[in-house]
Write a protein that binds this DNA or RNA. Structure first.
Length: 282
DNA sequence: TGGTATGTTCCAAA
DNA sequence: TTTTGGAACATACC
């Protein structure tokens, strides 16, 4: 369930019920997910008031009074649920009890999620790359990320230390909208391609947020971004831009979807028939 | 039964 | 040194 738009949707859905509340108790049913350990987290958060609920990359950030933070990463199957009377939540891995009696459940079928307690937020998020919907994500910033390396474009876009928030789905959708093949070398993009890619990333993420994320299986309900997918999960279907069949390939162990005509392996030729200008490497 | 899964990390190999 | 491949984490679904 979790890429930037889904995480942002979770933040927005829970913010109002969390802000201003104090954490009365914390319980972990799978301690391996808690960092540095359950006792430290409990010691650090119990009695603290939640002052803000935000997002950094794919991390949910609870800012507590006294300078403490709880970061939650949903990984593949994590989710938040409010305890309901009578209804049994499945795969409950941790419970935050609040001072108003409500209990926030961290549920996670695959147990890949992480709950991190820290007093140094910037140190904990220091390795994360640029925030994609922030002003810092300029064309120069993207250029820097792509042209300082010679990696295949898709795995680079998925690298959270370079760029924070894209996952498998939104990367495929961004590359399709930009007309860039996922195997293109990151330092081979023209200025025009780079500008298209940046615009596509931001547009796709914003649409994802507007649609409350994508709901593609039992993990995350409520979103509608899956209705706007152009390539993800559509192998064999006709591209709605050109009619070519969408194909599925493997890139860096991830299922990858693309339109071979809209996303050629070689850069597009200009209207004059010349090859697009190559950028010099740094 | 086997293959796949919206993520990340670690190690080995190229 | 940089980049890539594979395994691991653990479970559910088709």
């Amino acid at each position: 369930m979790p890429e930037l738009p889904e995480v942002e949707s979770v933040v927005r859905a829970h913010r109002d019920k969390l802000i201003g509340r104090r954490i009365a108790a914390f319980e972990s049913l799978w301690p391996r997910q808690v960092s540095p350990d359950v006792a430290s987290l409990r010691e650090g958060v119990c009695g603290r008031r939640i002052e803000a609920v935000s997002r950094r990359g794919k991390f949910i950030v609870l800012s507590l009074d006294g300078g403490a933070f709880v970061l939650v990463h949903l990984r593949m199957s994590g989710r938040f649920e409010w305890e309901e009377n009578g209804a049994e939540a499945s795969h409950v891995r941790a419970i935050f009890s609040l001072d108003d009696g409500r209990r926030l459940l961290f549920c996670d079928a695959r147990k890949f999620g992480r709950i991190i307690y820290t007093r140094d937020l910037s140190a904990t998020t220091a390795r994360l790359g640029v925030e994609l919907l922030s002003r810092a994500f300029t064309p120069e910033c993207l250029s820097d990320v792509l042209r300082r390396r010679a990696r295949r474009i898709k795995p680079l876009l998925l690298d959270q230390t370079q760029i924070a928030g894209l996952g498998n789905i939104y990367t495929d959708e961004s590359l399709f909208r930009a007309g860039i093949h996922p195997l293109r070398r990151s330092d081979s993009l023209s200025d025009a391609e780079l500008a298209r890619l940046r615009a596509a990333i931001r547009a796709v993420l914003r649409e994802g947020i507007r649609r409350n994320g994508a709901s593609i299986d039992w993990v995350y309900p409520g979103g509608s971004m899956q209705e706007a997918f152009r390539v993800y999960g559509r192998a064999g279907e006709a591209c709605d831009a050109c009619g070519e069949r969408i194909v599925s390939i493997r890139v860096g162990q991830r299922g990858t979807h693309l339109c071979p005509r809209c996303q050629p392996r070689q850069p597009r030729r200009t209207p004059r028939g010349r090859l697009s200008t190559r950028r010099r490497r740094r």
